[in-house]
C-alpha cells in the first residue's frame, strides 16, 4: 500500500510538482530501512541529499581583515620613508650650503686682507707724494 503512495509521490517529484512536505515524506521513506525492492535505485539519491544537508563550514568568519591592516601599515611606512629621505636630502643640502658659505667667507677674508695690504701700500704712496710735494715746494 505504502509503496503505491510513494510511487505517486515520485511521479510528482520528477515533474517538480511536490511540496516541501511531500518531499520530506519521500526523504524519510528512502532513508529508512524498509524500501520496496523496485524502488531501490532511489535510495542512494535521497541518502546523498540527506548527507549533503549535514555538511558545514569549519572556518570562522572574520569581518575585519588583516590584509587591509597590512595595506594600511605599508602605506604609512612608505610615506615615512619618503619623508625621511626628503628630510635627509634637505639636511645634506644645508650642510653643503654651510660648507660653501664658510669657504666663501674665508675667501672674502683673504681678499679683504690683501686688499687692506694694498690700501696700506697706497697710503704709503700717498705719504711719499705729500713728502715729495713739500720737498719740491721748498726747492722752488
Amino acid at each position: 500500500m505504502e509503496s503505491k503512495r510513494i510511487e505517486q509521490l515520485l511521479n510528482k517529484y520528477l515533474n517538480a510538482e511536490t511540496t516541501i512536505q511531500e518531499e520530506t515524506i519521500l526523504s524519510k521513506y528512502f532513508t529508512g530501512l524498509e524500501i520496496a525492492p523496485h524502488l531501490e535505485e532511489y535510495r542512494a539519491l535521497f541518502l546523498y541529499y540527506a548527507q549533503s544537508k549535514t555538511e558545514y563550514s569549519t572556518q570562522s568568519i572574520q569581518l575585519k581583515t588583516k590584509k587591509q591592516h597590512w595595506k594600511w601599515i605599508s602605506a604609512v611606512a612608505s610615506f615615512v620613508l619618503l619623508i625621511s629621505v626628503y628630510a635627509g636630502y634637505l639636511y645634506d643640502q644645508n650642510k653643503q650650503a654651510e660648507y660653501a658659505f664658510e669657504h666663501t667667507q674665508d675667501a672674502f677674508q683673504l681678499l679683504s686682507k690683501n686688499l687692506n695690504r694694498g690700501t696700506n701700500a697706497v697710503m704709503y704712496l700717498e705719504n711719499y707724494k705729500t713728502a715729495t710735494g713739500k720737498v719740491f715746494k721748498e726747492l722752488n
Partner: peptide
C-alpha cells in the same frame, strides 16, 4: 573520508 558508500558518491 566521510565514508559515503559508492552509490551515494555516484549521485554526487
Amino acid at each position: 573520508k566521510t565514508e559515503i558508500s559508492d552509490s551515494v558518491s555516484i549521485v554526487h
